[in-house]
């Protein structure tokens, strides 16, 4: 694998993460628990899909085969998606939505901070834009973790269940493969081991404050770096890609 191919796959991974999580959150549009939260969640979904678009555009340029951002989003099959299993997990109750969001927000926050030092100018620009959005996302999900964890008996129980249930998907956030190795050497991508340390410390701090017990690290789910997904991604793509599959190249 050369640097170009690694960069292409790397951009796809980052874009897929944002697109799939953005899509999940968009499912809550008009279904939020309260009006204000409905708008907040939809705002975050839009931020993520915006980040995904920029990354797909860049991926398409790097690939240089004439594909567009839409081709990459709508015309790849499930096994060609590299988003984390965590990002595709269903919304569940509000505690699950918030726990999933919090784990990813903490990751994104430290990740994009590191990506600001990338030697790749485009990724650096993307990070500069994303970090402002992600800083707010993290603030939003952190405030909810604190309130649900340290809220009522019911909200505490639900959040603890959500955190316990999603924990096995968090290990995958920090998995690295050949793509990372090549790009770390070039100074383009951050080393996810460094992010992991920061992630663990932040997550421990917030969970402790919210009176939620941090689960023990046990067996961790894996697969997405190779395009292996949970059963949920197929349904997401079926819905997301339906129009382009049924009416190829349909235009507005």
């Amino acid at each position: 694998m050369d640097t170009k191919e690694a960069l292409f796959k790397y951009c796809l991974r980052l874009a897929d993460n944002n697109l799939v999580l953005g899509h999940r959150l968009s499912e809550l549009c008009s279904n939020g628990p309260i009006l204000e939260e409905d708008i907040a969640t939809t705002n975050i979904a839009l931020d993520l899909i915006g980040q995904a678009r920029h990354l797909y555009q860049y991926a398409a340029e790097v690939e240089g085969k004439g594909r567009t951002e839409d081709d990459l989003a709508y015309k790849r099959a499930e096994r060609e998606f590299y988003n984390t299993l965590l990002s595709e997990q269903p919304n569940g109750d509000f505690a699950v939505t918030i726990a999933r969001q919090f784990f990813i927000d903490v990751f994104d926050y430290y990740f994009y901070k590191e990506l600001l030092n990338s030697k790749d100018e485009r990724l650096k620009e993307l990070a500069a834009r994303a970090i402002k959005e992600v800083t707010y996302h993290l603030r939003h999900s952190t405030q909810w973790i604190l309130r649900l964890g340290d809220g009522t008996e019911e909200s505490h129980k639900r959040l603890q269940t959500a955190v316990d249930g999603l924990w096995m998907y968090t290990g995958e956030l920090f998995e690295m493969n050949e793509v990372d190795e090549i790009l770390i050497k070039e100074g383009i991508a951050p080393n996810l081991n460094d992010i992991k340390t920061k992630w663990e410390s932040k997550v421990s701090e917030v969970l402790a404050e919210s009176t939620i017990t941090k689960p023990e690290d046990g067996w961790m789910q894996t697969g997405s770096r190779k395009g292996m997904h949970s059963e949920h991604l197929g349904y997401i793509l079926a819905e997301m890609q339906y129009l382009q599959r049924a009416y190829p190249d349909a235009q507005w």
Partner: peptide
């Protein structure tokens, strides 16, 4: 106006609803 349980959430909700 917004509904919120406390001042910090009120500020966030206001940001989300009125400054998009």
């Amino acid at each position: 106006s917004v509904h919120a349980p406390d001042k910090e959430m009120a500020l966030q909700n206001a940001r989300d609803v009125y400054t998009r």
